[in-house]
């Protein structure tokens, strides 16, 4: 893959064809659909309630292998609900969710999840935290340790293996969470505002690391954020959701180079207008959106 060539067909499921390239195990250049939502809605029914209001409705989109797609929208529009359905924590009320070629009915292998909270276990060392997914998968100890050390090194945490989470700063803890996410060797990453609790500079450094990894390893990612500049800096495409019941109202292709280098991309002339467009779509600054 040279620079970004983001000519993706959206809502492709309507045509019934979702795999473009050869088999699901073809080369890195394969463009198979990795995440797909087809007419998905979700309502949380209370006991004895028949027609619960939908949190999200009519979600239809697909994300191809290697793509990074951001999801933005007003608070409470159901972004996290969407992510939880993708990762198999909830099932959809209607519609189908496909991840990595299979319908999501529970936790799917090769999917990882990262939240705003680092969710490091305070009783485990940083290294043991990174190993936790492999421990669940019963990976042999030596291999576990090797992978964890590699990931910690990659996330600039070498030397902190034996530290406990409380001994690390917020940024370092989130790095450790990233290392834990990557240690699962996921094909698909669901990221729910992973950097929103960090200070502006730490955030940019971590974005840089993440963008690099995603690009080099051709990972597919769905990235929820409130930070419009972050969305533009990191993604190939941006999906804009409406307020509740959330549905996708706009899809924007980020036709800018440097997807592996958000710091450079932020400086590009094309970034500003895109952010402006997103602000417009989300009515940022409008009277009623302020309250």
């Amino acid at each position: 893959m040279t620079s970004t060539s983001p000519v993706y067909v959206v809502n492709e499921s309507a045509s019934g064809e979702s795999t473009v390239a050869a088999g699901p195990d073809s080369s890195n250049h394969s463009k198979r659909v990795e995440i797909e939502f087809r007419g998905v809605s979700k309502a949380f029914a209370q006991k004895g309630q028949k027609d619960a209001p939908a949190v999200v409705k009519d979600l239809t989109f697909s994300i191809r292998k290697g793509e990074v797609v951001s999801l933005i929208g007003p608070s409470g529009c159901g972004k996290s609900t969407l992510l939880n359905m993708g990762s198999g924590l909830y099932s959809a009320t209607t519609g189908t969710v496909m991840v990595a070629g299979q319908e999501v009915k529970g936790p799917v292998k090769r999917v990882a999840f990262m939240l705003q909270k680092d969710l490091l276990m305070p009783w485990r060392t940083i290294q043991k935290n990174v190993e936790v997914g492999m421990e669940i998968a019963r990976v042999p100890k030596a291999e576990r340790q090797a992978v964890a050390q590699e990931m910690l090194h990659k996330c600039h945490l070498a030397g902190f293996e034996k530290h406990y989470p409380f001994q690390l700063s917020g940024g370092m803890r989130q790095r450790a969470a990233l290392a834990r996410t990557l240690a699962m060797k996921p094909d698909v990453l669901f990221l729910d505002e992973p950097f929103s609790a960090l200070d502006a500079q730490t955030k940019m450094v971590l974005q840089q690391d993440l963008a690099n990894t995603l690009y080099n390893e051709q990972k597919t990612a769905l990235f929820i954020t409130h930070d419009l500049a972050e969305a533009v800096a990191l993604s190939d495409r941006i999906l804009v959701m409406s307020s509740r019941p959330g549905t996708i109202i706009e899809e924007i292709t980020v036709d800018l180079p440097h997807r592996n280098n958000p710091l450079e991309r932020r400086k590009l002339a094309g970034t500003g207008p895109l952010i402006g467009r997103l602000m417009e779509l989300l009515h940022v600054g409008d009277e009623d959106a302020m309250h």
Binding site: S87, G88, P107, A112, L119, M121, V132, E135
Partner: peptide, 21 residues
């Protein structure tokens, strides 16, 4: 923390592993 439980549920943890970990 339910998020911590979810985190390891996504890692395919069994009921026993959720308890133990």
């Amino acid at each position: 923390d339910p998020d911590m439980v979810n985190l390891i549920r996504i890692m395919n943890a069994s009921r026993w592993q959720i308890f133990r970990l």
